[in-house]
């Protein structure tokens, strides 16, 4: 369903980024607002990124092919092409991380873009610090994705006091083992494979329970709530299993 579940395309920029210093990474901004384009360009350039800016979807896709950016910042409301469509077209030939930019209250668009293979989203207006942090997460992911996305997370995933040993199928919180049901383990494993990235309800339900459960987001909420009671130090203020309202979940990456 999502491109992320399939083996990464050979066009992925992973190897290149590995060689190139993250600070010098190329960021392509596709946004029709000149002020946003200018502000983002200035902000990212001062942080050491190489930035190009396109204000149309079609031109943006062409620029991706020519310039081979390491991260794409994509506004969802473009005058010529729907942002979700841009996402879909890009994903048909490249695995370059896409961070979607959108205004509040367009959750459905965000979900659609994420399911078309976008890696992350940011709600406008956003701070420059937040944007740079998200770009770094995306770059780190491309650096890891040499094979299938699930393997990329490595055999040992550690988020704060939460440890996931994929080889031994063990979950530890603060050094002591936590007993999870096989289903709970699969959910955690799927989130760990997408560490730091947003996973939509549908993606998670599809991957763990199968296609016939894709619409059961409400039961997933109850399920995640139960899982939090086992792995979160304070289940009412989750630190690891973060809810992305209206979209899905994210296993927060260790800072």
């Amino acid at each position: 369903m999502s491109a992320q579940d399939e083996p990464a395309s050979l066009l992925g920029a992973g190897g290149e980024v590995g060689r190139r210093k993250a600070a010098g990474a190329r960021v392509l901004v596709i946004d029709d607002e000149p002020e946003i384009g200018r502000a983002v360009r200035l902000g990212l350039q001062s942080a050491g990124f190489a930035v190009e800016w396109e204000d149309r979807g079609q031109a943006g896709i062409e620029r991706v092919a020519q310039w081979r950016p390491d991260v794409i910042l994509l506004d969802l409301s473009l005058p010529d092409l729907d942002g979700v469509e841009v996402c879909k077209r890009l994903r048909s030939w490249t695995q370059t991380p896409i961070i979607v930019l959108s205004v509040r209250a367009h959750e459905a668009d965000k979900v659609a873009a994420l399911e078309q293979g976008a890696d992350d989203y940011l709600t406008k207006p956003f701070g420059m610090g937040e944007l740079i942090a998200r770009i770094r997460v995306a770059l780190r992911h491309t650096a890891q994705s040499t094979g299938a996305a699930e393997d990329a997370a490595g055999a040992l995933v550690r988020v704060g006091a939460l440890e996931l040993d994929l080889e031994r199928r063990l979950v530890m919180v603060e050094g002591s083992e936590v007993h999870l049901t096989p289903t709970e383990y699969e959910v955690l494993k799927y989130l760990a494979a997408h560490l730091g990235k947003v996973v939509t309800h549908r993606m998670l339900l599809h991957a763990v329970w199968g296609p016939s459960y894709e619409a059961e987001a409400h039961y997933l909420r109850v399920f995640i709530n139960q899982l939090r009671r086992k792995v979160e130090p304070d289940p009412s203020r989750p630190r690891y299993l973060i809810t992305e309202p209206g979209i899905g979940y994210r296993l927060r990456e260790a800072e």
């Binding site: 590995g18 650096a143 890891q144 040499t146 094979g147 393997d151 490595g154 550690r158 994929l166």
Partner: peptide, 14 residues
């Protein structure tokens, strides 16, 4: 796991 993770990737995850 299908393939063993590279030490590099493991480091990045932590």
């Amino acid at each position: 796991p299908a393939t063993p993770a590279t030490p590099e990737a493991r480091e990045a995850a932590v």
